[in-house]
Design a protein around this nucleic acid. Sequence first.
DNA 1: GCCGTTCGTCGAAGCGCTTCGATATTGCGC
DNA 2: GCGCAATATCGAAGCGCTTCGACGAACGGC
Lengths: 335, 335
Amino acid sequence: MATIHDVARAAGVSISTVSYALSGKRAIGAATRDRIDAAVAQLGYRPNAGARMLAGSRTNLLALSAPLHADTYAPAHMTFVLAIAEAAREFDYDTVLLVQDEAVNGLRRMVSSKLVDGIVLLDVDRDDSRVPLVRELDIPVTLVGIPADTTGLTCVDLDFEAAARLSVERLAAQGHRQIGLIGHPEELYARGSNFPIRFRDAFAAAAAEFGVGTHFVMPEQEPVSVRVALEELRRELPGLSAIVLNCNEPVHTMALELLRQDGASIPQDMSVLSACSSFPTDQLDPPLDVIPLPALITGRRGVELTMNQLGGYSEPVVELVPPAYIAKGSTASVT
Amino acid sequence: MATIHDVARAAGVSISTVSYALSGKRAIGAATRDRIDAAVAQLGYRPNAGARMLAGSRTNLLALSAPLHADTYAPAHMTFVLAIAEAAREFDYDTVLLVQDEAVNGLRRMVSSKLVDGIVLLDVDRDDSRVPLVRELDIPVTLVGIPADTTGLTCVDLDFEAAARLSVERLAAQGHRQIGLIGHPEELYARGSNFPIRFRDAFAAAAAEFGVGTHFVMPEQEPVSVRVALEELRRELPGLSAIVLNCNEPVHTMALELLRQDGASIPQDMSVLSACSSFPTDQLDPPLDVIPLPALITGRRGVELTMNQLGGYSEPVVELVPPAYIAKGSTASVT
DNA sequence: GCCGTTCGTCGAAGCGCTTCGATATTGCGC
DNA sequence: GCGCAATATCGAAGCGCTTCGACGAACGGC
């Protein structure tokens, strides 16, 4: 492996000149720079990561704390992980993955060994055990998800409250008076999982505000359970004409299949809207109107906010990504 | 942050003594060691990662190359990632995650900047673009998955051939003469994806060997497509009495639901076996006999093989994990 | 033509750790 | 009681990089 020393010799300059030429932190003559660039290319020189970490103030490594609960929906989770790892690369950062126990315990290790410059926390619960920890860690941290107490923290997430309100608003404007909400499995709510609860509560509030009746069910990812849930909606909401799905893809598929079997066509007999979904709904049959969970945007923003903190000082902020509504023709006005 | 210097002073010894006490590479007096341990604990000392990398020969970082194709089944993929990250920790290693483009391009960067000590490649295709690359990289590498040409490479994977043979063998022994195989979506095979092809081909060979009729279908993850696939099996195999599922969880659920709707009870009317599944099949209705895809075992083994290479020299090996058969009562003898 | 700048380059001092010889101390055989 | 081997500890030399202060050269203003 070539070292900076080799490059310096090949270019006929000193080590510090090479360093400055590569970092751009001081002006370097054009001719000199060219010779250095040529030497770098010819030797295939790459700065030694360890040396850089030790001498410089940056490690160019980002910790990604990604605990995975038994009930975590893997595809969504994965999308966030991908978004963050890719966004990090745009800042010339690599990502150290901390899973399971290490998602909590590893953080302190990352910081005290100075392995990483910053941390992104994924899948933050309302009352997350990582929150008190990162509060005392003196390092840039961004939480993807909003904990109960955000004091002093930088957070980013989809504005689930606005998304819930938008769902109700659109359907109410179409004349729907009874709107069913299909949520995630019950454990998630019991565990204090973040966004399902925020969505559910804001949905209820919006329903009250717009004066529409609503009922909430939490089926398991399992056909029988979904059928029971649908039946419960019909029983509780006699004039049911619209359903909002705030659940995983398999439950979407099952619900659509069950509606088909019941002879309910979409959107004539039933308007269906997918809210906060991390997967493409236009592959479903029929394609569904959707308020996407923009994992790519949110994840990337989580990295950006961390990088901002690395630069100058930025005040802690809670940043809510506004929801978008994408129509696919699966909702219609009540006739 | 405390440095080794602080620890040395607090314990009243030299820096090198602290280093040796912590690494155990030279004998240290019991009393001295105790004082050092106390100082370490009291100061909360953690070796600086950059300094360690630079001075030592190890970085204690492992690269995990995990490209994610559009058709990759996220839960299975995630299980491998988790298994590897957790196994790495048992060797005191952290995992640098390389996704998408970086899964290929990042590798060279990892090596030439000496950021990582070893590499694990996930989701290796038959003709994977990373294979020629890692062959020329002078660093411990383990592939999870078996490429077409394994010369000079260390690989580990479930023995899919044996798994396919085991499937046929068990069902043939129960007297089944016509066995349907439901595979993954067609794109996977077209792309040269690794294990679906290995399973399919070995299945056909085993069927020929045991003299049973078989037919292979590749439904999309979509109820209509699964229904069509089932109908095709029934049409092609008039005496169909057993089905092997080598596909994703949602397709399992759909197939079982369709069989139920057709009034076919398991195992009386139809024996069903799930082969090489990364998810628990006892949550299905009914629970299915399964030959598991042992992601935890395979992933961990991938790490272990890499660590072995880091230690002494070990010859490249292709290690096939033998399949296991777990009965849940979803297959029965033909009556 | 002299002084104060600006520009381009260099030497050297670390960053915190590992590791290779020493050196000092102890214990043992005879 | 002497020498030799083990045992315990230390000092110092790097690992490859960043960054600070210095310094020579070129340049414009007067």
